[in-house]
Deep mutational scan, measured.
Amino acid sequence: HITLTNLITEETTHVVMKTDAEFVCERTLKYFLGIAGGKWVVSYFWVTQSIKERKMLNEHDFEVRGDVVNGRNHQGPKRARESQDRKIFRGLEICCYGPFTNMPTDQLEWMVQLCGASVVKELSSFTLGTGVHPIVVVQPDAWTEDNGFHAIGQMCEAPVVTREWVLDSVALYQCQELDTYLIPQIPHSHY
């Protein structure tokens, strides 16, 4: 019994991606959610070859190996599938703050939850000092008015990073160091 759908849910078992011959794909929301959820992320060749051979072929032979941004053979989907007991964002409290493009905020929040993070909706909701690490995620190029994202640091004691930190961490299924993704914050004294 196979159901085809464009939506990823808890029940989804396989995410089928358009890939090149070496099982490398573009980074899409579907790709990120498939990895975050520990699903099989496979090339569409799995479907076409299975139909051709009239049997369901082994997914291992068709698993996506990499993507056009993070590298052609990083094995993120395999790492995620085999590490669902070791979520990459466990112990983190993440607030997805401000506008985002090409990806609804609720989907970004679901993605970080699938990776083990707790989501907070407001900067004031962080449970500071409880052994949980707060992180604010923003997408600077989605902000149309002044660079308000440079002043988020005044509203909460949390590192502010770009959305790329989430996307790179999920694609590779390895929590990336914050340093290269940090957004400089204007210190309090400048006000």
Rank of each mutant, 00 (worst) to 15 (best):
D141A: 08
E109G: 06
V69P: 01
W143T: 04
I186R: 15
F45G: 06
W46T: 00
S83W: 01
M56C: 08
Q75A: 05
I2C: 07
G91A: 13
L108T: 07
L123F: 15
F45W: 07
Y181C: 01
I51Y: 10
V24M: 05
R72T: 03
E145D: 09
V41T: 06
L182K: 15
K39I: 11
Q176H: 00
R163L: 05
D20Y: 02
N70Q: 02
L92H: 10
L33I: 14
E157L: 14
E59G: 07
S83G: 15
L4D: 00
H133P: 08
E11N: 02
A151S: 12
I152N: 07
G91I: 01
D67M: 02
Y181F: 08
C95S: 04
V120I: 07
S124A: 02
E59S: 06
K18T: 03
G71H: 03
L4T: 12
V64Y: 01
L7F: 12
W46L: 04
F126V: 08
C25L: 01
L178P: 05
V161K: 02
S43I: 00
H60P: 12
G34P: 00
N147T: 12
M111L: 12
A171P: 11
C95Y: 12
Y191P: 13
Q154R: 09
A80Y: 13
L182Q: 14
E82S: 14
H150Q: 03
W110R: 04
D67S: 00
Y191T: 12
G38F: 08
T127S: 15
N73G: 09
Q139R: 01
L182P: 02
H190L: 12
K78A: 14
Y173F: 07
Q107H: 03
K121T: 06
C96A: 01
V161L: 07
E122G: 13
Q176D: 02
W165A: 02
C96G: 05
E26R: 08
Q174M: 11
I186L: 14
I135H: 00
Q49C: 11
H188Y: 10
P159T: 03
V64P: 01
Q84L: 13
G153S: 06
M17V: 11
V69H: 08
K87P: 10
C156S: 05
G153L: 13
I51S: 07
P134L: 12
H74L: 07
Q139G: 01
E177K: 15
M155P: 14
T5Y: 07
T5S: 07
E145P: 09
H74I: 11
G131W: 02
Q75P: 02
G71D: 01
L178Q: 04
V136T: 11
N73L: 12
H188L: 06
W143S: 09
Y191G: 09
C115W: 05
G131V: 05
D85P: 12
E93P: 14
L114E: 08
I88F: 09
H74T: 12
E145K: 14
N70A: 08
C95A: 14
P187A: 14
V64A: 05
W143G: 05
Q185K: 13
I51C: 06
Q154K: 10
E164R: 10
G34R: 00
E53V: 09
K87T: 15
L7S: 05
E157D: 11
E157V: 14
F62D: 01
S83T: 09
H133E: 12
E26G: 07
G71A: 06
E145V: 14
T5G: 03
I94R: 01
F62P: 00
V160R: 12
G148R: 09
L114G: 08
N6E: 14
Q75C: 15
I2H: 11
A21R: 07
V138A: 09
G98T: 03
Q84I: 08
F23D: 00
V119T: 05
E145W: 14
V42W: 00
Q185C: 14
V64S: 02
Y97E: 06
P134Q: 06
T12C: 07
L178A: 10
E22H: 15
D179H: 03
V68S: 11
N102R: 14
N147E: 15
E11F: 11
R163H: 04
I51G: 08
I186P: 12
F23Q: 05
D67L: 00
E177P: 15
V16P: 03
D168V: 06
T162S: 10
R90A: 15
E177Q: 15
G66L: 00
P77D: 00
Y31Q: 00
G76T: 09
L29A: 12
N147Q: 08
